[in-house]
């Protein structure tokens, strides 16, 4: 079930996608900064982008979202958002990041808000070319095997499309006139393109045994050196596709009776993250918070990293802390 879409037909294909939800896709914001925004005009679509600043997690775990309408006497009434969205042009690393988020937000105590949005969102992946910050081959996330509905691999003037779900299959059925069966020659081209892409990666990180290496390197000077230059701003958390800490807060309206319960992204690099009532802080210093973040990224659970090698934390760090470089230093001496 591999299909082929000519680039000339992309606009018509997007027209069909709109039947399935509001299409959001990477658009150039400024310079090299791309964002997933609503695709109002297919001319602004940038399918060969490097990376968006904010990862697609923002569609599932919103930067700020209302969870409940609250009433001081009556309690909480759930706010349900059932909007349908099509995310076009998601890279393999970001799809793999969503798969990691699923493990947290769906596998145990499923989060209603996240799960509903995940079910209401169609994800169409697109192949990419690495830049000097990408290291997804090291984190085993350079190729998406699941977590998408369709995946488009760019081959010259066309896309080879993989179908990842029943919903994806429905889109393919709707787009029958635009899609052709991929020929054996197309598949050959697809394999060639994938092999070539792998050769383009220049950044590599050895993650073999990194969990123990980090545990044993608590006293490594590299933590303090980087904590000294770190602004503690939390940008790395905001741009990370697998960072998912949140905080909740209640806001009352002026009537002091009704209000909303809101959740918003939080950051483990901020001082109040480890604070408990009474003033005790379990991670009082920046170096402890930095160490914690690197450890958290290198372990979701015993069997999985919590990093997909997208390079965002390095690209957007205002202090130029290089994620891979820090881990290499810890690992090498």
């Amino acid at each position: 079930m591999y299909k082929k879409l000519l680039k000339d037909d992309l606009e018509n294909f997007i027209f069909i996608l709109k039947k399935f939800g509001v299409v959001h896709a990477p658009v150039r914001e400024a310079g090299r900064v791309y964002e997933f925004t609503e695709l109002t005009d297919s001319k602004i679509l940038q399918l060969n982008y490097t990376r968006t600043m904010i990862p697609p997690k923002k569609f599932f775990l919103k930067p700020k979202e209302q969870l409940y309408i609250l009433n001081r006497r009556e309690g909480f009434k759930e706010i349900v958002d059932d909007s349908k969205i099509v995310l076009l042009g998601v890279h393999a690393c970001d799809i793999n990041a969503l798969n990691l988020l699923d493990r947290i937000y769906i596998d145990q105590f499923p989060d209603r808000y996240y799960k509903t949005r995940r079910e209401n969102t169609i994800i169409i992946g697109v192949s990419c070319k690495p830049d000097e910050y990408c290291f997804c081959t090291s984190t085993n996330s350079s190729y998406a095997l699941e977590g998408f509905d369709l995946f488009m691999h760019e081959i010259d003037d066309s896309y080879i499309i993989r179908i990842g779900s029943l919903k994806g299959f429905q889109i393919v059925c709707e787009s029958e006139n635009l899609l052709a069966e991929a020929s054996s020659n197309d598949i050959k081209e697809f394999k060639r393109a994938e092999a070539e892409r792998l050769k383009e990666f220049t950044l590599h990180l050895n993650v073999n045994g990194i969990q123990d290496i980090l545990d044993a390197s608590y006293d490594h000077p590299v933590w303090q050196e980087n904590a000294d230059i770190c602004f503690g701003c939390g940008s790395c958390n905001l741009v990370c596709p697998t960072c998912r800490c949140y905080d909740t807060a209640d806001f009352l309206n002026l009537d002091l009776k009704t209000g909303v319960r809101v959740r918003r992204w939080d950051s483990c690099m901020l001082k109040q993250h480890g604070l408990v009532a009474g003033g005790l802080n379990f991670r009082p210093t920046r170096v402890e918070r930095l160490y914690n973040r690197f450890n958290c990224k290198m372990s979701l659970s015993e069997d999985s990293l919590n990093c997909v090698g997208c390079g965002r934390c390095t690209v957007y760090c205002p202090a130029d802390i290089n994620f891979v470089e820090v881990l290499k230093q810890v690992g090498e001496d």
């Binding site: 105590f109 989060d111 990194i210 969990q211 545990d215 800490c245 905080d247 939080d266 379990f282 450890n295």
Partner: peptide, 15 residues
């Protein structure tokens, strides 16, 4: 319920 991340502790060989 293991989502908000505030109570995460440990280094990466035992989170």
């Amino acid at each position: 319920v293991g989502k908000c991340g505030h109570c995460i502790t440990g280094s990466s060989n035992s989170i």
